[in-house]
Computed example of a mutant assay.
Amino acid sequence: MEATEKKASYFYVLLCKDDTLYGGYTTNLDRRLKEHNTGTGAKYTRPAYRRPVRMIYAESYVSRSEATKAEAAFKKLTRKNKEYYLKRNGVSIPFKDQLNRIINNTEESNDADTEEF
């Protein structure tokens, strides 16, 4: 029997046009970014004043559960703590200096890592 390859799950952060941060989960970063920018993504990014959005950070997880736990933990943070988390993970602040999407692999993540938020 041939082993099937699991799709990576991602927790990602968007910087919206109105300078707000949005955290989400996906298995396909490019597709999800396009959905957000066309207004078919999350309810939060549908209003035109929030678009275009830019993906400024992403983390790769081996399971959907871990990625959604990271997303939920991020969403509970204050703006200041979200910025601290992003800065700690290599995202330049102010965000206009951030040119590339950053992907951290967390293949051996555990619940303690998620709670660090």
Rank of each mutant, 00 (worst) to 15 (best):
L29F: 08
A72L: 10
T78K: 13
T40C: 09
N104H: 15
E35Q: 14
T27K: 09
R79K: 12
T40G: 06
T45W: 14
V62Y: 03
S9P: 03
R54A: 08
T106F: 14
Q98R: 12
A67M: 09
Y49A: 10
N100H: 05
L99R: 15
Y10H: 03
Y22F: 15
S9M: 02
E2N: 07
L86N: 04
L86M: 09
A48T: 13
E116P: 01
A73G: 07
R51P: 11
K96W: 12
K80W: 00
I103T: 13
R46H: 10
E59L: 03
T114M: 06
L33T: 07
G39I: 09
R101H: 05
D111Y: 04
T20L: 15
D30E: 07
Y22L: 06
F74G: 02
T20Q: 14
A48R: 03
Y85G: 00
R32D: 08
A8H: 04
T114F: 01
R51K: 13
S65V: 10
A58M: 06
E71Y: 03
Y25D: 06
T45K: 11
T106D: 10
R64Y: 01
L77T: 01
G41H: 08
F74L: 06
K7W: 09
P94K: 12
L33H: 04
I102Q: 07
F117G: 04
E116I: 09
N81Q: 14
K76N: 13
T40L: 11
E2Q: 05
T20I: 02
G23K: 02
A48S: 08
Y25T: 08
F74S: 01
E107Q: 10
T27A: 11
A58T: 00
Y84M: 11
F11T: 07
K76Y: 04
N105Y: 06
Y44R: 05
S63L: 09
R46G: 03
N28H: 11
G90Q: 06
M1L: 10
Y44L: 09
N81R: 15
K76S: 11
T78H: 09
R88P: 01
Y49G: 01
